[in-house]
Design a protein around this nucleic acid. Structure first.
Lengths: 231, 231
DNA sequence: AGGGAGTGTAAAGCTTGTGTAAATGTATCG
DNA sequence: CGATACATTTACACAAGCTTTACACTCCCT
């Protein structure tokens, strides 16, 4: 059994340090983000996490917002942590799609036990199923099968094309730079005069256009690409 | 979505009555057992439960014992309830294989939210992992005998071929990576340039094709294999 | 309007994954 | 100790698809 990867999103430096020291020897790999945006970005990157520990009070984007956005594309299990122990918060978090909820201050062993319980349960799921189906307009994306439907037709995409579309759809309505696409999809920095991203986008457009005429991927000259929101 | 079936094991008549009235209108079917033995017997019966709510203090067989015995044969999710709020108990329960732990007295809405969270998570399990005989299209798989029928003809498969087919069929409609196949079927990490999975898949296709022409196992270049859903 | 930088896309080239046959290894059983 | 059955490795041809090249075009700035 390979080491389980956890993502801890919490701005309390003392706590994150402590937890890192506590959890690492137990055989977990722990990544840490100190604000909501960084956390969300890591959580939705192509790196796979088995569990996310999410604080509620966070700079930039609070825990509930992170959870909400995460759940539009990913089903990664989430254990929420909060200073506020009040029931309403707990219930709200769970209703929003969290898997567990623990109030600070917590017993480290209880946290450890709850992490173990969640990871144990998740191990029964095929890892591919942590990604949510994504539907925007008439384009539907099914991560477990890595399939895309456009106007209910199966569109045959290559792995790279699929990844790019997925990335753009996750960030629909906001701009994604070529650098970003290159790093997240191809795993390498974008070289100068590198046209491969353009090529993939071009092919993607062509394939989608075969089923649906309206333009879905917009170019922002000098900046990147943008998946148009079309409710 | 059919009604979720819950099993409540608790000797507190007042509480069980209350919970029944509270949970039934929320769309759950609730069975109740008032002692450990009866609970275990129901839990291990052929009736399928989506979730078990298990009190710790029970006549005849206490909650931990019930959990321990249940886990020898069943992976049904368990939410433990207890009057004792102490951490040690919680940790002990979770370590023993419980999925969640809630101390009495609890907020009904929190219980409801935690039930919902667990049920929601469980719904992601591949549908067929519960059922015994897998039949998809004209291919039927009978695990006890390790036999496969295709268009009602017995297909002679080797153990490995059978395992691969089984894995793909359980995850039908989702992509299964070669790494995954290698780890789950052969019990070892996929080495670079290892072609053995390809071999088995090739043989599997050949054997199935002898009885049924249509393609069932699709290759996703660079990603893995996918068993096509055929209603 | 002119020019440069950024972009769309076709076509060619090249890398890499895949299908399959055959050879080699390995376990089981009489 | 063979004989058999199966798993694995090797080898090679092939095809998919990623990348590069090339060139036309568009946008934007001056």
């Amino acid at each position: 059994m390979s080491a389980k990867k956890l993502l801890l999103i919490d701005d309390d430096l003392e706590l994150t340090e402590l937890l890192k020291e506590y959890l690492t020897p137990q055989g977990y790999e722990l990544d840490v983000a100190h604000d909501g945006e960084a956390g969300l970005s890591l959580a939705t990157s192509h790196k796979h996490y088995d569990l996310i520990l999410l604080d509620v009070m966070l700079p930039k984007l609070d825990g509930f917002e992170v959870l909400k956005k995460l759940r539009t594309s990913h089903l990664t299990p989430v254990l929420m942590l909060t200073a506020k122990g009040d029931d309403y918060d707990k219930i709200f978090g769970l209703e929003m799609g969290a898997d567990d909820y623990l109030a600070k201050p917590f017993n480290h062993r209880e946290l450890s036990a709850r992490i173990k319980a969640l990871v144990r349960r998740m191990a029964l799921l095929p890892s591919s199923s942590v990604q949510q189906n994504l539907k925007l307009g008439n384009v539907e994306l099914s991560p477990p099968a890595q399939q895309v439907f456009c106007a209910n037709n199966l569109v045959e995409l290559t792995a790279t094309e699929y990844s790019i579309l997925h990335l753009l759809m996750i960030n629909h309505g906001s701009l994604v730079s070529k650098q970003n696409i290159s790093e997240k999809v191809l795993g390498k920095k974008l070289a100068a005069f590198d046209r491969s991203i353009d090529m993939h986008v071009s092919n993607l457009r062509k394939k989608l256009a075969a089923f649906s005429p309206e333009e879905k991927i917009k170019t922002h000259r000098g900046a990147g690409y943008l998946y148009l929101v079309s409710t």
